[in-house]
Design a protein around this nucleic acid. Structure first.
Lengths: 133, 133
DNA sequence: CCGCATCCCTAAGGATACTG
DNA sequence: CAGTATCCTTAGGGATGCGG
């Protein structure tokens, strides 16, 4: 696994053959993950999502929900009551995804400090060329 | 875990407290992941990356590498030879991340067909309102 | 070989106002 | 309540050319 690179035909990473990117493209949107998280515990209504997710606009909530629905990650159930009531729920596939994302969270939390420090030291090392007098 | 939502204080997802998003923001760039993958097997040179990653521009390669370096995910080693030779290598932290991303890949591959079908059926269901004569 | 600087363009996403 | 429609701003990223 960790054998040295030979220098021959250096890891041709074909974008079309890279499934990670597919997932990321699906989830890279600013709000997708937060929706997945917010809906992970069961059906949730539109307005609940709107209030639960800090700073999301109605427009983006709708758009992101539509995309998730299109990808089969959330189901949309309209209760024909008055006033209308719409519930969104994660599909089993989305729940799996949500669990997988949890691993990323773990990584992030384990390495949060490391990264912060790396940034800090990089930034001082590459300080804006201070005007020497 | 899958208990019903109570309706009370519906999962306030604070963006600042959501570590997944941090990782994603770091990796969401169009090229970051492919670089991580391409460099996962050991030190690799700038030009090798450039040739190995289909469609990347020199500019984006440089930028993305800089960001990864800043976050402590790759190291940059300059060999003061002539012509110059620069090698990039993943840090242990990046290797961990790479493994975690593998889980996402697994999910993507397991669900690729499901998603494709979901999209297809969504798209036909929400066909562009055909102009009825 | 490695990389930075510049210009440009597109698409994600915010703000706001209107409806079934 | 749960959306849609419209306008506008910004940042990601492509193309290209120069330089150590």
């Amino acid at each position: 696994m960790s054998q040295r690179n030979t220098g021959v035909t250096p890891q041709v990473v074909n974008a079309h053959a890279c499934p990670v990117r597919e997932v990321l493209d699906r989830v890279a949107g600013k709000w997708s993950v937060q929706i997945l998280v917010a809906a992970a515990h069961g059906p949730i209504r539109f307005t609940e999502l709107e209030r639960g997710i800090e700073g999301i606009s109605r427009r983006m909530l709708t758009l992101t929900l539509r995309n998730l629905e299109r990808d089969g990650l959330v189901t949309r159930t309209v209760h024909p009551t008055v006033p209308p009531k719409v519930e969104y729920e994660l599909t089993p596939q989305a729940l799996e995804l949500h669990e997988t994302l949890q691993r990323l969270t773990d990584w992030a939390e384990r390495n949060r400090v490391y990264i912060a420090e790396a940034r800090a030291s990089y930034d001082v090392a590459h300080e804006p060329e201070l005007a020497d007098a």
